[in-house]
Amino acid sequence: MKFASEFRDPALARSLLSAIAARADAIGATRDKPLHIMEICGGHTHAIFRYGLDKLVHEGIEFIHGPGCPVCVLPMSRVDECIEIASRPEVIFTTFGDAMRVPGAKGSLLQAKARGADIRMVYSPLDALELARRNPGREVVFFGLGFETTTPSTALSILQAAREGLGNFSVFCNHITVPEPIRALLGDPDMVLDGFIGPGHVSMVIGIHPYDFIAAEFGKPIVVAGFEPTDLLQSVLMLLTQIADGRAEVENQYARVVPEHGNPASLAAIAEIYERRPSFEWRGLGEIDASGLKIRDGYGAWDAERKFGVGYGAGRAVQPEPEGCACGAVMTGRIKPTACPAFGHGCTPEMPLGALMVSSEGACAAYWQYGGARAAAE
């Protein structure tokens, strides 16, 4: 398959693994004193486990799973607010499938649907727009969720709704940004990180320069990576080369897809529709300054928070994690999923306590599906 099979070539993978091992030995990385490399993106976490890269790389390399799953970092209070909006009889609430089973304090959207709320899974905000056109007597709300990858499509949908005058369409905006939580992690004295694998899809939109502070201020190398096995292996080798050379730079392994300065049309749509929130709550990280986006006043007619009086503008109660759930610690790389006392016992994909077990980018789901953890738990 063009643009996939060549990045899964076994001979190339073996060559990269040998080069990684030689470089790790030269640096002095060992099982007891490993280099800690954080893959920011949940898609990278799943690729690492799907292809067994965690077991194939040199024993002196330890992957740390970062907060790069937007469904997983959403606080429980925001899920509860989704349910509050969706439970109104005039509302058709639309969402991506990943978010349907994420638990809040009041249950999940799927459970709210079972109780009678009109909640529908969509594949794009354009699907929600079409529902609004077909149902002029109903309020259609789209759950705007995700990092910079999905932010432009939501912005363009709001622009289209404004052009058409679709007053029965609105967005419950929970879009967040990648650089700010990385800054928060690097400011934590307990976090030991030697380098970062940067997110490929996010970087398609924003480019590579928003990560400059990682190298310039904190002296850590970062390599933006693709999602195929040889992409990730080459990225690890590039990080080790920087460490061996005593360098800390932003490098782009995924240059075939990621432009240096991002996508101008997407960035323009984001700037038109959104502004920064003063702060936003992240599961496991707490409030992080300027890490969330909100809809600008000029497009307030399509802002579900204003329309229904929920969210940050209306005050809210922060909900603690369920007892026994360690999602926050897993998501910030402090522990592995298997160290959570609920993993595989009180928390499974069928009956999840936390979002990391149900999201397609969650670290716990990756361990369960690919890491052999399911068999161990059962």
Rank of each mutant, 00 (worst) to 15 (best):
A271R: 12
A304P: 06
I273N: 02
F93C: 06
E164L: 14
G42W: 02
H345W: 11
S87R: 07
R247H: 15
I206K: 01
G165Y: 10
S360F: 09
E321Y: 08
G165L: 08
G104K: 04
R283A: 03
G28E: 02
L285D: 04
L240Q: 00
R183G: 14
P34W: 01
I208M: 06
P349G: 08
S108W: 02
V140N: 04
F308I: 13
I288V: 09
R296H: 07
P34L: 00
T151Y: 00
F227S: 08
S279E: 15
A244R: 08
F169Y: 14
A162T: 06
A366I: 05
F196T: 02
R23D: 00
I206R: 00
I119A: 03
P75R: 04
T151M: 06
S359L: 05
I48N: 02
A105Q: 14
Q234M: 12
I27A: 01
E180M: 07
G346L: 10
I273E: 01
Y312D: 13
W368L: 09
G219C: 06
R374V: 13
L145G: 01
R316S: 09
F63K: 03
Y123R: 13
A244V: 07
S124P: 02
A355V: 11
A248Y: 06
D32Q: 11
I295S: 01
G354I: 11
I27Y: 00
P70K: 06
N252H: 02
E228V: 13
I176R: 13
G146I: 02
F172E: 02
A13C: 13
M238S: 04
E249W: 07
P259R: 12
E378G: 14
R31G: 00
P103L: 01
V250Y: 08
A339N: 12
F308L: 09
T230I: 09
Y312K: 12
L129C: 07
V224P: 00
A304C: 05
S108G: 05
A215N: 06
T348M: 05
V236Q: 00
G107A: 03
S235C: 09
I273K: 00
A355G: 11
A339Q: 14
C72W: 03
N174Y: 01
A377E: 06
R101N: 14
R50A: 14
I288M: 07
G300R: 14
K294W: 02
